[in-house]
Amino acid sequence: MTPAKAPADHPRIPEAKTGILIANLGTPDGYDYWSMRRYLNEFLSDRRVIDYPAWKWQPLLQGIILTKRPFTSGANYKLIWNEERNESPLMTITRDQAAALRARAQEEWGDRVMVEFCMRYGNPSTQDVLERMVEAGCRRIVFLPLYPQYAGATSATANDQLFRALMAQKWQPSVRTCDPYFDRPDYIDALAASVERALEGKKPAKLVASYHGMPKRYLTEGDPYHCQCQKTSRLLKERLGWEDGIIDTTFQSVFGTEEWLRPYTVEHVAELARAGITDIAVISPAFAADCIETLEEINGEIRESFEHAGGKGFTYIPCLNDDPAHIEVMLNVVRDNIGGWV
């Protein structure tokens, strides 16, 4: 489209649209050493994730961690890799989520909206996707990080990367970032329905709600993540109509030597087994899509910890992924933020 009364050589301006951009953590391009090293370097160099001074952290990261960890992480990714599409399950699921959200958004708003997804680390990068959306005419963008609970190391760094990408734009679109959705009734309903479906309506002796961990220090420094995780667990218990004590909130994926949020999932499930609770279910309410932390860590390391301690029955309840109820939650969050734009 050329503006009215513009000279003949005026650059073409695409018809204005509103963009909806969902973002997840990211994934390596492959499970080989160099793909893993590039991904881990970007992830572990993020000061939102590891906030140690660079002079202290980078020599350790570059000299030791990135020499060894790509091999072990690559082996874990290989166990869950989507060989048919040659990508990680997180990539497959996030693409499917974007496609489902795009279909629902177009039902509601037609061609006035454009729905895309990006990754904080790896590809498709936030900058590349934002640039493509701007070139397609998105003058306004609703940005939804796919983290139900807010944390500096997840939601905030996703926003940071979006803002950095905006700095490269000559004509910046208006942007609205979405609040976390950890206590939305529709999200809690979707979680509860996934529990009831997986357990076929039965009540377990224990449901372990395992959230991604973070250093305990972050809580004392003002990060609300721990409190929001606790509230999600409480609301889930209330929605299911269960009594106190059935749902335990725990934290996984501990890294480094400092103390992280407790209890640690891998230790807690073993303690349950030794205490005679030999049948449990595990759910991961902090993850919007199944990934290495759920498919390999929970169904691998954490399951093994439980079984080695005497546990018999271990049920992993999948993430909400592209379940229609989850897509409706995303659409409702967008609705709350897109008002006046379409």
Results as ranks from 00 to 15, higher is better:
99 A>I: 05
53 P>C: 08
31 Y>F: 15
126 T>W: 06
125 S>E: 12
83 E>T: 12
139 R>Q: 11
53 P>Q: 03
101 L>C: 01
95 R>A: 14
40 L>Y: 00
122 G>V: 03
55 W>H: 06
126 T>I: 15
136 A>H: 00
45 S>E: 00
25 L>G: 05
43 F>R: 07
148 P>G: 04
115 V>Y: 06
87 E>P: 04
84 E>P: 00
91 M>K: 10
103 A>L: 07
137 G>T: 03
116 E>S: 14
41 N>E: 02
30 G>S: 12
92 T>I: 07
125 S>W: 08
129 V>T: 07
129 V>R: 08
122 G>K: 01
98 A>E: 00
60 L>E: 12
81 W>G: 11
95 R>E: 12
94 T>R: 09
141 I>P: 02
140 R>W: 03
90 L>R: 12
55 W>L: 15
100 A>L: 01
149 Q>H: 12
145 P>C: 05
128 D>Y: 06
49 V>P: 09
54 A>L: 07
61 L>A: 09
63 G>F: 07
80 I>L: 08
39 Y>P: 00
53 P>N: 10
55 W>I: 15
135 E>F: 00
126 T>V: 14
82 N>R: 01
98 A>K: 03
126 T>P: 01
144 L>I: 15
111 D>C: 05
35 S>C: 13
96 D>S: 13
42 E>D: 04
67 T>F: 15
78 K>C: 04
29 D>T: 03
